[in-house]
Simulated scan of single mutants.
Amino acid sequence: MLFRARETARQKAPVHPEPSQVTLRLTTGEVAVTLKRNARARRYTLRVRAATRDVVLTMPERGSLREALDFARRHVGWIEVRLARLPEVVAFVEGAVIPVRGVPHRIVHRPEARGTVWTGGEEEPVLHVAGNVAHVPRRVADFLKREARRDLVEASHRHARALGVSISRVTLRDTASRWGSCSANGALSYSWRLILAPAFVLDYLAAHEVAHRREMNHGPRFWALVDRLFPERHAAERWLKKHGAELHRYGTGE
């Protein structure tokens, strides 16, 4: 009976859950560190994410939190160097230059004008933004998302017709790790930031996701479908590999 009582007491002892994120102090400030356990990991590893401008610390399944944090602290210099290499954030404010379908546009505030956002410009492409200056970031973000939805819906349905498949809906998100996805029921999801890339890159991502309506994998038959829908896929993939991370620098936090 005594043994059982002690076991019960031990089982009821409070268990403190392991944090999923910690803050690491740098010489230049602080940075969020996301903790992830991986059963296949054999050592501690660090990765700086350009999209979220934070750090991921991967731990072996049996690794200790204390060892992981010590590992991160020993590599503060490495983290700082990589964070410093990230492109500067460009907010949606007066005078900022942002790409729309790959073409740089300067944001110009037009407080006296009616409407919301429209394109124009004679000497250089311009995004005109009407209304109160405090509303400029939100109005620019809303404009880009509307344009992204229009282009992605059109491209998705065009490729679906070419492939003889159906899609149930198209949604937009601000994802950090993937540009698009396709569910088993035909729902497509994309990053709205694709509107910042050249039009052919957006078109490729639409073809890629629509092809999953036939092949929910990345095997040879899937890529044959993508090439049928979008023969220039290698050029689009090269562009994303080289410039994709930079799309996350615009309007961060808007």
Rank of each mutant, 00 (worst) to 15 (best):
M1Q: 03
L2R: 04
F3Q: 05
R4H: 08
R6S: 06
E7Q: 03
T8E: 01
T8H: 02
R10G: 02
Q11F: 02
Q11M: 03
K12L: 03
A13H: 00
P14L: 00
V15A: 02
V15P: 00
P17R: 01
E18R: 01
S20Y: 04
S20P: 06
V22N: 02
V22I: 06
L26M: 00
T28Y: 01
E30N: 00
V33Y: 03
R37E: 05
N38S: 09
N38R: 15
R40K: 11
Y44R: 09
V48Y: 11
A50N: 14
A51W: 08
A51C: 14
V55Y: 12
L57E: 09
T58P: 14
P60Y: 07
R62N: 15
S64G: 06
L65Q: 10
E67P: 11
A68C: 06
L69H: 04
D70P: 03
V76M: 04
V76R: 07
G77E: 09
I79S: 11
E80N: 03
R82M: 06
A84P: 07
E88M: 06
E88K: 15
V90D: 03
F92A: 04
V97S: 05
R101W: 10
R101M: 13
R101G: 13
G102H: 14
H105P: 06
H105S: 03
V108C: 06
A113G: 09
R114M: 12
G120P: 08
G121H: 05
V129R: 02
G131E: 02
G131V: 08
N132V: 06
N132D: 04
V133Y: 12
A134Q: 12
D142V: 06
D142Q: 09
F143D: 04
F143M: 03
R146T: 14
A148I: 10
L152K: 12
E154F: 15
E154H: 13
S156D: 09
S156W: 14
H157F: 15
H159N: 12
A160C: 15
V170R: 05
R173I: 12
W179N: 05
W179G: 04
C182A: 10
S183W: 01
N185S: 15
A187H: 14
L188N: 08
Y190D: 08
R193H: 09
R193I: 13
R193Y: 13
L194A: 09
I195Y: 09
I195M: 05
F200N: 11
D203F: 13
L205A: 10
A211E: 05
A211S: 14
N217W: 02
P220R: 02
P220T: 01
P220H: 01
F222S: 00
A224Q: 04
L225W: 02
L229D: 04
L229Q: 03
R233M: 13
A235G: 12
A236D: 03
A236S: 06
E237L: 15
R238Q: 11
W239S: 08
K241D: 06
K242N: 10
K242C: 08
K242S: 14
G244C: 10
E246Y: 12
Y250I: 00
Y250T: 01
Y250A: 00
G251A: 01
G251N: 02
T252L: 07
